[in-house]
């Protein structure tokens, strides 16, 4: 066997970094999630080519309870990815801002919650109201 490097999924997830590391892991995960949704979206549009019936069938799929729940996750992914991206842009553009990383993270979390929670509430209330 070649020499090990002690790098694997277990050590990646198990590394105890600070808030920056957790945000980065979440940034990657949400980025992947949004990308998967985009792929689904493109497939959806592509199905138009097979006629109205096929296209509508997939649209009905979006009305399923699990799909509505996934919409909340999509909102989470897009909102978090955008907010975290903005923080990184600020820190890249102004190196002095790097000294206030924890404060910037706190601002990011507050802004994220301020956007995500009301929007998620509206979506969930609409879903529950529609279902009832």
């Amino acid at each position: 066997m070649s020499q090990p490097t002690n790098v694997g999924l277990r050590s990646w997830i198990g590394y105890r970094g600070g808030s920056g590391y957790l945000l980065w892991l979440l940034h990657r995960a949400t980025g992947l999630g949004v990308l998967m949704f985009l792929a689904l979206h493109i497939v959806n549009i592509f199905l138009l080519g097979f006629g109205e019936e096929v296209f509508n069938k997939l649209l009905y799929l979006y009305q399923a309870p699990w799909a509505r729940a996934m919409e909340v996750f999509l909102l989470f992914g897009v909102t978090f990815h955008a907010m975290n991206g903005l923080r990184i842009i600020i820190q890249d553009a102004f190196p002095r801002a790097w000294l206030h990383q924890r404060r910037l993270v706190a601002v990011e979390v507050v802004l994220f919650l301020a956007v995500f929670l009301p929007a998620a509430w509206i979506m969930v209330a609409d879903f529950l109201g529609g279902a009832g």
Partner: peptide, 26 residues
């Protein structure tokens, strides 16, 4: 560099590494 800050957290000499990298990027 993806601005993760693990380097700054790990440095035993408390060097503000991510800031230094930012200055070099700039």
């Amino acid at each position: 560099c993806r601005t993760i800050f693990n380097c700054t957290e790990a440095c035993p000499r408390d060097i503000k590494i991510t800031r230094a990298i930012g200055e070099v990027k700039k």
